[in-house]
């Protein structure tokens, strides 16, 4: 394996992937940094010169900034919490002996394959609509006043939709992990007199630690850039404006590229803070 010849060949084979990703990271990043120091309004005069840190100050001092950060964190945190907790419960349930396990797995994983625009539209219209939605019918059936989900409880509604999309992923990964748990460990604990809930807390849960880390890492990567679900349902209204969506509005709706770019830099910083934090855990956890 480790001959000199194979080493240099290996470098060569890695080069395209590394160079492409480096370019994909650096080129747009440099441009974003460049625009962020400019007053740049494509439809109203274009490049209007350097403005220093003006855009950065304006973006942060805008009344929408901190709420959007909070919305982002609530959305990501809420979905992670729901999917991990329910995922563990479901994984344990699906690991029990039963009839038609394969079929149930197919039912459970289905939402993962549904494109975000479809799931957002279906939930918005056919379930959460206050007049015709299925949930409204359900509420009326029990004599309750139908909820206007996407305006009265907009953020929780979106958290719910996104959780529905990601629960299958969490469940199946955790199920795979549970299936790899050595049953002798559980039997030993049983012999040692540990009741079921303690066996779960001291053996099953620690065994799942690694799988939970993976679920959190991968979901965070995708959740930070949630877009279509908000675009289709509320369009960023009713307190569902995430940082991503706020920047999107600055760039495309108000056509203020300078301001949006400054926002982009903030988003990159936020993502990096989370990334460093996550990579630490993951790097440690994957190192074996």
């Amino acid at each position: 394996m480790a001959t000199h010849h194979s080493r240099s060949a290996a470098r060569l084979m890695m080069a395209p992937a590394v160079v492409l990703l480096l370019g994909w990271m650096l080129v747009p990043l440099t441009m974003t940094l460049y625009f962020s120091f400019k007053k740049y309004l494509p439809l109203r005069g274009g490049d209007l010169g350097w403005v220093g840190f003006d855009n950065y100050v304006r973006f942060v001092s805008s009344s929408a900034f901190w709420p959007s950060v909070l919305t982002t964190l609530t959305l990501v945190g809420g979905v992670l919490l729901i999917t991990v907790v329910l995922g563990v419960v479901l994984a344990i349930l699906l690991n029990q002996p039963m009839w038609g396990q394969g079929m149930v797995r197919i039912l459970v994983i289905a939402p993962f394959f549904v494109m975000p625009t479809v799931s957002a539209l279906v939930w918005k219209n056919m379930f959460m609509d206050p007049n015709y939605g299925l949930l409204a019918h359900l509420w009326e059936f029990f004599g309750a006043q139908p909820v206007e989900w996407l305006s009265q409880a907009s953020l929780p509604s979106i958290v719910m939709i996104v959780s529905w999309q990601w629960l299958p992923f969490a469940t199946l990964i955790l199920l795979t992990a549970i299936q790899s748990l050595d049953s002798e460990q559980l039997e030993a604990a049983e012999m040692d007199g540990a009741p079921a809930h303690k066996r779960f807390a001291f053996i099953t849960l620690p065994h799942l630690g690694r799988a939970i880390t993976v679920v959190i890492l991968i979901q965070t990567i995708f959740l930070l850039s949630i877009f279509a679900e908000i675009f289709v349902t509320t369009g960023g209204a009713f307190g569902t404006k995430t940082l991503t969506y706020l920047i999107f509005q600055r760039v495309l709706e108000s056509q203020n590229v300078g301001l949006g770019s400054a926002g982009g830099v903030y988003a990159i910083i936020l993502a990096n803070i989370i990334a460093i934090f996550l990579m630490r855990i993951v790097g440690k956890n994957l190192a074996k």
């Binding site: 080129v27 760039v251 982009g264 988003a267 990159i268």
Partner: peptide, 12 residues
């Protein structure tokens, strides 16, 4: 690199 927010580089 997957964590770079897409929206941050949309305009470029």
């Amino acid at each position: 690199t997957k964590m770079l927010p897409a929206v941050g580089v949309l305009y470029p």
